[in-house]
Computed example of a mutant assay.
Amino acid sequence: MGRVYATPEQLAAYTGAPAPEGVERLLARASEDVDAALLTACYAVDDDGDPTEQPVVEALRDATCAQIEWQLATGDDGTGAAGAWDSVSIGPVSLSGRKSGPPAASGVDLAPRAHRALRRAGLLPGVIW
């Protein structure tokens, strides 16, 4: 398993709700999504490849939690299959319509809040000179 940027407790604090069933799998998949968006990002890491600067650690944590929050709100289980359906309802929230348009440039459908967290930390867009 790859790097995981948030804990179940951090997810619960971020969303204000208890961590859902299968949270470890959701965290792993959301962390993979964040990694995919960061393919060209440059930031300091330790010998294990973990970020060392606190703002980067926090941005990766927040982006991972935002990705899961968005997936849960849209009815996605982390597989990306939810984008194929016409409607999703969770409690009082109801969404309908089919997602259209090209996939994200990174090849991952990144949640808007996750994108903002990474952009605020200066991790997006990554540019290699």
Rank of each mutant, 00 (worst) to 15 (best):
Y43K: 01
G107Q: 05
W129H: 13
L26E: 10
L95G: 03
A82D: 07
T7D: 03
E32W: 12
S106H: 11
L95P: 01
Y5E: 04
R3L: 13
W85V: 07
P20W: 12
L38P: 06
L11T: 01
A36C: 09
A37M: 12
C65P: 10
E9F: 01
A104D: 14
A17Y: 03
Q54F: 05
G83I: 13
C42Y: 05
G126F: 10
T7P: 00
A12C: 04
W85N: 05
L11F: 15
L118P: 01
D62I: 05
T74P: 02
V45D: 05
S89H: 05
P125D: 07
C65M: 12
D35Y: 05
E58V: 12
R119P: 00
R61L: 04
L39A: 13
P125G: 11
A28M: 11
W85M: 07
G49R: 09
V23A: 11
V57Q: 14
M1I: 03
R116S: 11
S106Q: 07
G91T: 00
E58M: 09
T52F: 02
L38D: 10
D77V: 03
A82L: 09
W129M: 00
T40D: 14
Q54S: 09
T15M: 10
R120G: 00
D46W: 09
A28W: 02
S106C: 15
D50S: 11
A114K: 04
A111W: 03
P18H: 03
P125H: 03
G2I: 00
A44V: 14
L72R: 14
D50C: 10
G126H: 04
T64A: 08
R116W: 12
A84F: 09
D76A: 02
D50V: 05
R29M: 15
T40P: 00
G80T: 05
P18T: 04
Q67D: 04
E53Q: 15
D77I: 05
Q67P: 08
H115S: 13
Q10F: 01
W129Y: 11
E24A: 14
T40G: 01
L27P: 10
R116L: 14
A12V: 02
G22M: 04
S31R: 09
H115G: 00
W85P: 00
L60Y: 00
G83H: 14
L123G: 10
G97T: 08
L123Q: 06
A82W: 07
R3G: 00
I90T: 11
D46I: 08
E58N: 09
A114I: 04
V56H: 08
V4N: 02
G91S: 15
V57L: 14
G80H: 11
V34N: 06
P112F: 08
R120N: 13
A28R: 13
D33G: 07
G16C: 08
R61N: 08
L60P: 01
K99V: 08
P102T: 12
V108Y: 08
A36L: 14
P103L: 11
P18W: 00
A41R: 03
R29V: 11
A105T: 08
S106F: 09
Y43G: 02
Q10Y: 06
P8S: 10
Q71Y: 07
V23R: 03
K99I: 10
Q54K: 11
R120Y: 04
A63P: 10
R98M: 12
T79P: 04
L27K: 12
G107W: 02
A30R: 01
Y43V: 05
A82H: 15
S87W: 06
Q71S: 12
A81K: 10
V23N: 03
